[in-house]
Design a protein around this nucleic acid. Structure first.
Lengths: 332, 332
DNA sequence: TCCCGTATTGAACACGTGTGCAATATAGGC
DNA sequence: GCCTATATTGCACACGTGTTCAATACGGGA
């Protein structure tokens, strides 16, 4: 191939500049011992030749590749896409590159992450709700810098950042109850998903604080379609709830559609609320009342934790709990 | 750090198995010359030790890293997220890994792609609508395997896959006109965006085929919010259009919201159509009539072109035009 | 038993860079 | 002008792998 023939290496630059190859390397290394004017000359000649240090080789020699693995289950759902956007932006802002791991069957995840470590990533940010405990422990044991987002594993020594799901649910329940809603139904997500576990627990606790119990409980898959189907079932039952709380916004959007399809007024006849505050929640036909999952701050904190962990692998593990904010719109 | 201390290399495996390091390398190389039973023994010892070839080192020595750069402008918008999902899935299915480049100011893109090439990616799939012609030419000249998605640059020798935007617009116009709509307004995107250029040109051509001209032309930014604002302006003007064609689905969703806000019936008083068929287009409150941009096939074709280009850098360049499919829902 | 062709093997080199160490240049103080 | 502390520099090695090439083992036919 032509490619390798045209590739310009540090050696070429050194020759052109009449210096040693080490000098070229040092010119590109922040804080290395080299005369300022010589560095300038080398840099200018390098850019003239179109030279750029080969990060692969650099990663082999030094111990840093500048790669950060982003472990996602799926990217297409609104919340994940949103989070991914912020994370990749944050990573780029720190001069690193995101290596994306996504879209594989859940079971394959463990193997995939191990595989990714063979790329010598400096660290990984895991946003997949379904990483196995075993994998997390293995990583922790391996000493690989890892930050979990939206998930906390008790007893596993891992940094994590996660919004206070229980607090969010408490705010929602308080809002609904204070408006006189007492027949509150719940549409949750998959039982294994951590966010769902915490949100459901928060819901139950908050309700019992008012001496209430869920009017009904149903399970969907965090999708719009799933939310709609379960809401249809709830709203056509003999005893209708007067409010539906959903485990995430997507299902809540589906629930609103279900109510409309049945000719029920939202929020007059049925109040509906979600969780996350994805962009679509603010769209005119929905105006969903929800709880804002602070994505930007989540990304920032995750990256901060990761960098601190990379710098000092022995520091005590930290769990950051972000405060969600109630967003009142029309649906409740 | 502990990490490097614990790292197990081919050398360790060779020692444990009582063979040369070359043998270990060959055991992990498909089709290399090695006795079958020896390979099995090495592989089993390797997995026992938790060894895995270091892809970074492998990329340095061989010429393949197994990395494919995905160049995106932004990831958060629905269509991009959707495409990204399919692309990353397709890449993973081929045993490679996606390296994500996104979320930088447009101008920085050229530098970013050049930077990414320093990771020795085997190739890149560029989905950013706004890659400069200069950059594309530079890549082509550099011989780096590149496939452009959703964009075609005349005169630049690059593989590309792109849906037939003009055909899509023709189908939409035909549908609208055949239903008696003659006052068709257009909300386009940024003038530089390739998809917008083609779609707008297709619209004008199709309209003129019926002896028509756009009732009005406005520009937004491919966002829901932008679409709503421009639609509000259109629908409150003295002479109202009887149909609004939008450059993409997101703007069309905004337009539907605008019509609702003004109490106009969709499609009775105003027909609205978009382009792409993002998931949200099928949501109940919208039921947007649109044209389906075949994302899965786009991803598959892009990867096919990339792999062929990697295998043979000299083959003639290919441009794949995918056929969009009209999706009739309620809004038109 | 000997010879030759073939399947395996191991040693050595290449890939492009960072970095420790000793050597050198430079400047400053006397 | 000389000596010493310091700033630069270049050499050589390390990083972990793929791959070429000569050497070796093996097996079969004469």
């Amino acid at each position: 191939m032509m490619k390798e023939h045209m590739r310009v290496t540090a050696h070429d630059v050194a020759e052109a500049a009449g210096v040693s190859r080490s000098a070229v390397s040092r010119a590109f290394t922040e804080g290395a011992s080299i005369a300022p004017e010589k560095r300038q000359r080398i840099l200018s000649i390098a850019s003239m030749l179109g030279y750029q240090p080969n990060r692969i080789a650099r990663g082999l020699s030094g111990r840093r590749t500048g790669l950060v693995a982003l472990v996602f289950g799926r990217v297409s759902s609104p919340y994940e896409a949103w989070l991914l956007d912020h994370l990749s932006q944050a990573i780029r802002a720190r001069g690193k590159w995101p290596l994306l791991l996504s879209a594989f069957p859940e079971g394959e995840l463990d193997g995939a992450l191990a595989h990714a470590l063979s790329y010598q990533v400096d660290g990984a940010i895991v946003a997949a709700g379904s990483v196995s405990r075993t994998l997390a422990e293995r990583c922790a044991a391996l000493g690989a810098p890892i930050v979990m987002v939206g998930r906390i594993l008790d007893g596993v020594a891992v940094d994590a950042v996660c919004c206070d799901n229980a607090l969010g649910m408490r705010q929602l329940v308080e809002l609904l109850v204070s408006e006189g809603r007492h027949r509150i139904a719940w549409i949750g997500g998959k039982a294994e998903a951590f966010s769902n576990v915490e949100r459901q627990a928060g819901l139950l606790e908050a309700l019992s604080g008012w001496g209430l119990e869920p009017w009904a409980r149903r399970v969907a898959d965090y999708s719009v379609e799933g939310g709609m189907l379960q809401a249809l079932a709830l709203l056509t039952a003999d005893e209708r709830p007067d409010a539906i709380l959903c485990g995430n916004d997507a299902m809540a959007l589906g629930a609103i559609s279900a109510a409309r399809r049945l000719g029920l007024g939202v929020p007059e006849e049925i109040a509906i609320a979600g969780f996350d505050d994805i962009p679509a929640a603010a769209w005119e036909p929905y105006l969903l009342t929800t709880v804002c999952n602070p994505v930007a701050e989540t990304a920032a904190q995750a990256l901060r934790l990761l960098e601190q962990r990379i710098d000092d692998g022995a520091r005590p593990h930290e769990v950051v709990r972000l405060t969600p904010r109630l967003v009142r719109r029309r649906s409740a």
